[in-house]
Structures are given as C-alpha cells and as structure tokens.
Amino acid sequence: MATIVDIKEEKALEVKNFEFTYAGADEPNIKKLTMPIAKHNITALIGPSGCGKTTLLRSFNRMHDLYPANRYSGEIIFKDRNILTKNEDLIKLRTQIGMIFQKPTAFPMSIFDNVAYGLRLQGVKNKTELQGRVKKALQDAAIWQEVKDRLGHDANGLSGGQQQRLCIARAIAVEPEVLLFDEPTSALDPISTAGIEELIVGLKERVSIIIVTHNMQQAARVSDYTGFMYLGELVELGRTEELFVTPKERLTEEYITGKFG
C-alpha cells in the first residue's frame, strides 16, 4: 500500500479507488489509485514513462472522454461531487479545471482572440470587459509587456516560451479553480522554463495546481507535495522537501537516486 502523507489543508480534489483502462488494452493503466490533492498548493506527479501520471492528469478534466471506448471506475471528488459520473457537465467542469499542454497550443488566431477564446465561450461579449480581463490574464501570465503592442498579431508568431505563457494566460482568463500542467516546459529552453516555473509558483495563491513532470529537479523546485507513481500505482505522496530527502518507500528512494527510471 502506498504511503500517503496526512494533508492538513483543505482538499481540492480527491481520487478514490480510481482505475483506468485505455481502449483495446487488457491491463489497466491506473490501478485502484487513491490520492488527495491539497487546495492552493502545487502537487507534482513524477515517475518513469508509462507509469500513468499523464493518464491520471487527463482524468481530472475528463480529456479521455474525447476518445471512444476508454474505461474507468472509482471516484474523483471535486466540490463535493464525483466528476466521473455520466451526467457530469463536461463543458462546465473544463472551465473549472483548466489544462496546459506539453507543446504550446496557440490557436491560429490573434493573441487577443486566443486569450479571449475561453471568455467568449462563457458568453462574455462586452468589449470593455473582454479587454480588461484579457489584459489582466496576460499580466498575470507575465507576458503583457511583450505583447501589449501587438495584440492583433497572429499568436503563432510568438516564440515557444511566449506561446506557453499565452496558453497559461488563456487558461487563467476564465478563472479556473484547478490548473493541470502536463510537462509544460519539456519543449522549452532553460530560460523560458525558469519563467514558466516562476509563474506556476505565483499562481498557487489563486488556483490549486497539479503538474506532471519528467524533471525531478523541477518537481523539487516548484511543488509543495510530490506523488511518485510506478506501474499505474501511487507509491508515495509526501511533502516535497520530505519525499526528496527522506522517502518512506524503497521504490521512491531508488527512483529519486537514479537507480531506475
């Protein structure tokens, strides 16, 4: 059984006995996983490739439902309800739980329209309100200074790091309660990576954050809690400073000391 540290904060999400099997697979990719996620904290998910960390991340906003025949069971509790039920309103859920992807995903439209996209989906039409909220989101994503003079330009003209910050601006513009980051810096250079990490840490006052990363230093730098996953199971969830210094499980220790991975 997994070693799970007692979380004192309020919980943003609670995974209970979650099992997930991809379409066509015989073996589940995630096995009976139970894990609490602390509110207004950063939880990092680490583990070797194929351990199920990205699969778990994409379960929080039901991304798997975009593809047919994936099977899952168990519960993920968010705001006192199980979001895995059939009658969950996915459109509303995804405005409350936002996501940033591995590769920047700027839409083929202007910088302004990119950030305004989620707001417009929610029916914000008032021009002044749109402009205000787009500006605020770009400021919060630390990219306003770089783009304020060219909001009408095609977003694909921005650099990779800028596009990723634009995507963060787009995600926080709709004021979600949880943000999911799926290896957000693996396609970026070290300077852009540092910028994004700083940004993520700054965001936790307003949103609860879960970040999947292949980079253990990154997990150690940004997160408050770290979960180590292996072969579809949560091996250990602990305070980051404790997990990396005094892991309770032998597997965790072997992984963070580089004995496998």
Partner: peptide, 8 residues
C-alpha cells in the same frame, strides 16, 4: 484538446 480543455 486545448479548445476542449477550455470548455468548448
């Protein structure tokens, strides 16, 4: 996926 993730 990015558009779906914004609730579209």
């Amino acid at each position: 996926e990015a558009a779906f993730a914004l609730g579209a």
